[in-house]
């Protein structure tokens, strides 16, 4: 399972799989594999959308690192 796919790529893969299922052109056994993968992608995406931790960062001009920032920065 390609976990390092971007959010955008996962959304696209999901759409492809669902469209394939709807077309009815796939055999029953293969369909089960596709459904399993699609459900896994949905779960991964929902998890990403659930993650709101540490969303404010500061670019450290000296080190080029992104460091977390608390609410009261400015």
């Amino acid at each position: 399972m390609a976990k390092n796919k971007t959010f955008e790529e996962k959304m696209k893969e999901l759409e492809e799989k669902v469209t394939l299922l709807e077309s009815g052109e796939v055999g029953l056994e293969e369909s089960i594999g596709i459904i399993t993968r699609a459900a896994a992608i949905i779960k991964e995406l929902e998890k990403e959308l659930d993650d709101t931790e540490g969303k404010l960062k500061l670019l450290d001009l000296k080190t080029d690192e992104i460091t977390p920032l608390s609410e009261d920065e400015a």
Binding site: K55, K57, L58, L59, L61
Partner: peptide, 8 residues
């Protein structure tokens, strides 16, 4: 869920 990176 959008990450914001502040570049002063």
């Amino acid at each position: 869920t959008v990450q914001i990176i502040l570049c002063p």
